[in-house]
Nucleic acid binder design. Sequence first.
DNA 1: AGTGCGATTGACT
DNA 2: GTCAATCGCACTA
Length: 181
Amino acid sequence: MARFLIGKLVMRRLPDGLAGGRIVETEAYVAGDAAGHGFNGPTPRNRTLFGPPGRAYIYIAYGTSMMLNVSCSPVGVGTGVLIRALEPAIGIALMESNRGTKRIRDLARGPGRLTQALDIDLRFDGIDLCGPGDLWLATDGANAPKIGRSVRIGLSKEAHRPLRFFARGNAFVSGPKSLNA
DNA sequence: AGTGCGATTGACT
DNA sequence: GTCAATCGCACTA
């Protein structure tokens, strides 16, 4: 699922228009993964992970940054994919306004930045990303880019597992250069 | 009720 | 490249 989502679109209907971007970086949090929020079973925060697949699981990291994930397993199993970066595609002026910068490269490069650019917060936790609404996943049929793979970013547990995927050579991918080859 | 810790970011050298 | 801010949540007592 993490690999499949590379090249797909995250779309958002804002009061002033449509905004969205192409997914260029994801991370998988799999069953039995000590770094995954679902590892110790359901809690109030992570209950969306244990619901049906295809839902938005949103949580706050470091007290400030919203993280957008896609739940990926049947009810009762807590796995998901973190969306880590978007290449801005539609409604760039709206994203610039939400982010307070005109540097296109900084609009959605990083999981906290992309949620700020698209005004995604806990209101969307649990929504169906395949259904009608103000936040959804889409495809425009574009060919999948060449996909690179590396260890995940910012983890202390399970730090060796190569479960991060990214569009190779894309300037909107986050992370250190050493991981983006 | 108290404590420790992040699936990060932005400012700064 | 380094580094501190920041706070909700899960865990322990």
